[in-house]
Design a protein around this nucleic acid. Structure first.
Lengths: 75, 75
DNA sequence: ATGGTCTACGGACTATAGTCCTCGACCGAG
DNA sequence: CTCGGTCGAGGACTATAGTCCGTAGACCAT
């Protein structure tokens, strides 16, 4: 599976655990609502800064999210 | 300090520890030499995929590089 | 049936990641 | 001095990240 698809899956998982809507996450991280949707569906490749912006609102370290991607990549 | 500047510093540090030139790293990670230079000087913001491509050639986990950025960010 | 919430998805756009080509400066070795 | 290896920098470009508009469908309650 590609990096961006795995990333999207993990992002969605964390967001849902936090009980946030895509729109709410977008608002808090100052990103666009439709862009969160694109990310979760693996249609976009976030920059490092975007990852930091997202994780800051999800109460998780950027490196932790990346680590989740790594782990799920080789499955 | 900004995320991209810290990232560049850490990238350079690791690359030099591995005794690779920018050109050699660029070749191995299938990126452009001038782009590695831009990254190290904090002039560009790498995508997640680019981080994976770089770290794969630096014998370090992507999450580890990101963790280094995190740690140095609040100094 | 209707209104609210959530999400997928599209098109058109702007900003910027990443490429390619080039030149100039530096440095240590021959 | 010159030459090879290395890097900074800039200009012009192409690809794609990220925005901003919208529509439509699913689900849930009233």
């Amino acid at each position: 599976m590609s990096i961006e698809v795995i990333f999207g899956q993990q992002l969605r998982k964390i967001r849902e655990e936090r009980k946030l809507s895509q729109e709410e996450l977008a608002f808090r991280s100052k990103l666009d609502r439709t862009y969160i949707s694109l990310l979760e569906r693996g249609k976009r490749r976030p920059t490092l800064n975007t990852i930091f912006a997202l994780t800051a609102q999800l109460d998780i370290a950027p490196s932790e999210l990346v680590r989740m991607v790594e782990k799920n990549l080789d499955i």
